[in-house]
């Protein structure tokens, strides 16, 4: 990819933003006046009705063009601003502002809250400090429709991070934050039964010797020995430290660590209008902050050298 000067970047961004704004203005005008003329046409005659429909159609067309321009702008900003910033921290393989973690992969992650709809963005893939990292914005919702009412409940909004352990973990270990309304006691056992029925995997609820950790997290594992191998006294402290910085759920499975960071926001967004070099730098700083918000949590855990090794030295845990 060719390099581009700040001046050219700003010029290109401004042109794209202008085109996007024009499309939005035309879409709003088309929809408003088209609807107005259509209503008037109902009383005045067929010609006005047809004119109204044509203008409405044009409004919809401009709306689609606006969405397309917006996507183009996001792709351009991702390629020219976000990706170079991410390369400061990692060997970036790809950055796709319009993609998120594969749906099939999401289905296998039983530590995520229940949902029937998922959407996300800003999928980052690459090598971070020797191991493979994948990070994206993710929102999980349960949408139910009762007659005329549609109820949307957001169960998770934040970032999903997955990172290579450089080792293979036997079974799956889930460490999820205790929250009000989360199943407890017999309901927790029923949840395990539900997972067993749906995925064929049998989980066991565990309590560690660390009372503070037990109050903060629910732990369930397919292989309790693996769980205790991962949850050393020092590592439990680190997990609590991460969780105090930002509410996070963890899952160790196969050769990956998954972290569901409940930031309650979309990150890596290019917000506001870019007018000058200072605006570009502000955006870059925001992206750096967004990446480090997730990576710094991972860095706390990476201090565990037993658990995290370079992926080229793959060994197994729990056997």
């Amino acid at each position: 990819m060719s390099t581009i000067s700040n001046q050219d970047l700003i010029l290109e961004l401004k042109t794209m933003q202008r085109k996007q704004n024009v499309m939005l203005a035309l879409a709003v005008l088309g929809l408003f006046f088209g609807f107005l003329i259509f209503i008037v046409g109902i009383f005045e005659g067929a010609a006005a009705v047809i004119t109204g429909i044509v203008i409405l159609g044009a409004g919809i067309l401009f709306l689609a063009l606006w969405a397309s321009r917006k996507k183009d702008l996001k792709n351009f900003a991702g390629e020219r601003i976000t990706a170079p910033v991410l390369r400061e921290f990692m060997e970036l393989e790809s950055f796709d502002p319009n993609a998120f973690t594969d749906r099939e992969e999401l289905k296998t992650l039983s530590f995520l809250p229940g949902h029937n709809t998922e959407h996300g963005s800003d999928l980052i893939r690459g090598i971070y400090k020797g191991n493979r990292l994948e990070l994206c914005d993710l929102t999980l919702q349960t949408i139910t429709s009762t007659g005329k009412t549609v109820i949307v409940v957001t169960n998770f909004q934040g970032q999903l991070l997955s990172y290579g352990l450089g080792r293979t973990v036997e079974g799956c270990v889930e460490i999820t934050k205790k929250t009000a309304g989360k199943p407890d006691g017999i309901l927790k056992r029923m949840r395990n039964w539900g997972t067993s029925v749906s995925s064929g995997r049998t989980f066991e609820n565990l309590e560690t010797e660390n009372e503070a950790f037990n109050r903060m997290f629910d732990v369930r594992a397919e292989n309790p020995h693996t769980a205790f191998l991962i949850l050393t006294p020092q590592f439990m402290e680190r997990l609590m430290e991460v969780n105090e910085r930002e509410a996070t759920d963890f899952c160790f499975t196969g050769d990956r660590l998954y972290m569901a960071i409940r930031s309650e926001e979309d990150r890596f967004e290019i917000g506001g209008t870019i007018e000058n070099a200072s605006d570009v730098e502000t955006v870059r700083q925001a992206i750096r902050a967004d990446f480090m918000a997730a990576a710094s949590l991972l860095d706390v855990l990476r201090e565990n050298e037993f658990l995290f090794t370079q992926e080229t030295q793959n060994r197994s845990i729990g056997k």
């Binding site: 565990l206 309590e207 560690t208 010797e209 309790p224 020995h225 693996t226 769980a227 205790f228 191998l229 050393t232 037993f306």
Partner: peptide, 19 residues
């Protein structure tokens, strides 16, 4: 590595005994 396994096994045993 075997020490790590032993510690894990010991802590799992003690957690079960405690419960």
């Amino acid at each position: 590595e075997t020490e790590e396994h032993l510690q894990a096994a010991r802590r799992l045993y003690n957690a079960n005994v405690s419960s």
